[in-house]
C-alpha cells in the first residue's frame, strides 16, 4: 500500500523494478535486494545527515524517515523519500543548491 496516499498496490518505482526480462533491477534475488536496501540506507543517510534527517530499513518492506526530534514518516520507496523529507522539514530540498553540493562534496572527501 502506498503510505502517502493509502492506495492499495502503489506504483512500482523504477529503482526497485520488478525482475523481468530486459529490466535492470537488484530485486531479483532476496540477498541482492537486502544488500541494495542496506546500501541505499547507508548512502541516503549521508545525504540526509546534511538536513539532520535519518532513514532506516523497516522489515525490509518500508523505510522510516526521522528528524532528530523523532518526528517520523513511513515511506515505501525512493519516490516517496524526498516529498516526505520536504514535508518533515517544511522546506524544499534542492540537489542543485550550491551550498548543498559544497557540503556533499565535503562529505565525500571526508
Amino acid at each position: 500500500m502506498c503510505s502517502l496516499c493509502g492506495i492499495l498496490g502503489g506504483n512500482e518505482h523504477w529503482a526497485d523494478a520488478v525482475a523481468r526480462p530486459g529490466v535492470y533491477t537488484r530485486s531479483a534475488e532476496r540477498i541482492d535486494r537486502r544488500r541494495e536496501r542496506a546500501r541505499r540506507v547507508a548512502l541516503a543517510n549521508r545525504v540526509l545527515s546534511i538536513f539532520a534527517l535519518s532513514i532506516s530499513d523497516w522489515q525490509g518492506t518500508s523505510y522510516l524517515l526521522s528528524t532528530r526530534t523523532g518526528k517520523t514518516e513511513i515511506i515505501e520507496d525512493l519516490g516517496h523519500l524526498w516529498p516526505a523529507a520536504e514535508k518533515l522539514l517544511g522546506r524544499p530540498l534542492d540537489p542543485l543548491a550550491e551550498a548543498f553540493i559544497d557540503r556533499l562534496e565535503g562529505e565525500a572527501d571526508g
Binding site: 548512502l43 545525504v47 524526498w82 540537489p95
Partner: peptide
C-alpha cells in the same frame, strides 16, 4: 556510476525539478 547513489540522486533531482 554507482547505481544506488544514482537512484538517490535522480529521485531527489526529479522531485524538485
Amino acid at each position: 556510476v554507482d547505481w544506488t547513489a544514482f537512484g538517490i540522486w535522480l529521485t531527489m533531482l526529479l522531485n524538485r525539478h
